[in-house]
Amino acid sequence: MSRAPIQDVPVAEHPIRLGQFLKLAGLAEHGAHARELLEAEEVQVNGRLETRRGAQLRAGDVVAVGGQRARVASFH
Score class of each variant (00 low, 15 high):
residue 4 A to G: 15
residue 49 L to H: 07
residue 41 E to M: 04
residue 65 V to Q: 03
residue 11 V to M: 09
residue 16 I to T: 10
residue 41 E to N: 09
residue 56 Q to R: 15
residue 20 Q to H: 12
residue 34 A to G: 03
residue 22 L to C: 03
residue 59 A to G: 07
residue 75 F to A: 13
residue 1 M to N: 09
residue 2 S to F: 13
residue 12 A to L: 12
residue 42 E to L: 15
residue 72 V to Y: 12
residue 15 P to I: 06
residue 1 M to E: 12
residue 18 L to A: 04
residue 57 L to T: 05
residue 49 L to G: 06
residue 16 I to K: 00
residue 38 L to S: 09
residue 10 P to I: 10
residue 62 V to D: 10
residue 17 R to T: 01
residue 66 G to W: 05
residue 69 R to D: 04
residue 20 Q to T: 13
residue 60 G to I: 02
residue 44 Q to C: 09
residue 68 Q to L: 13
residue 42 E to G: 08
residue 6 I to L: 11
residue 62 V to E: 14
residue 45 V to N: 00
residue 62 V to Y: 07
residue 13 E to W: 03
residue 31 G to F: 10
residue 76 H to I: 06
residue 14 H to P: 00
residue 16 I to S: 02
residue 28 A to P: 08
residue 62 V to R: 12
residue 45 V to K: 00
residue 48 R to I: 01
residue 4 A to F: 06
residue 74 S to Q: 15
residue 54 G to T: 12
residue 66 G to T: 01
residue 24 L to M: 13
residue 48 R to G: 02
residue 16 I to D: 00
residue 34 A to P: 09
residue 15 P to H: 03
residue 56 Q to H: 11
residue 20 Q to N: 11
residue 30 H to W: 03
residue 6 I to N: 07
residue 35 R to A: 14
residue 4 A to L: 08
residue 32 A to M: 07
residue 10 P to S: 09
residue 30 H to A: 12
residue 14 H to N: 05
residue 75 F to T: 14
residue 24 L to T: 04
residue 74 S to W: 08
residue 7 Q to T: 15
residue 32 A to Q: 15
residue 37 L to I: 08
residue 53 R to V: 03
residue 8 D to L: 14
residue 34 A to N: 06
residue 74 S to H: 13
residue 39 E to M: 13
residue 75 F to G: 10
residue 32 A to S: 15
residue 39 E to A: 15
residue 55 A to G: 07
residue 60 G to S: 07
residue 42 E to N: 10
residue 71 R to C: 11
residue 53 R to M: 09
residue 15 P to L: 04
residue 72 V to R: 10
residue 62 V to K: 07
residue 1 M to T: 14
residue 49 L to V: 07
residue 29 E to V: 14
residue 31 G to M: 12
residue 45 V to R: 01
residue 55 A to K: 15
residue 46 N to I: 09
residue 22 L to K: 00
residue 59 A to T: 14
residue 17 R to P: 00
residue 21 F to H: 02
residue 31 G to S: 08
residue 54 G to F: 02
residue 75 F to C: 11
residue 3 R to Q: 14
residue 32 A to W: 04
residue 52 R to Q: 13
residue 20 Q to G: 04
residue 54 G to L: 07
residue 1 M to F: 12
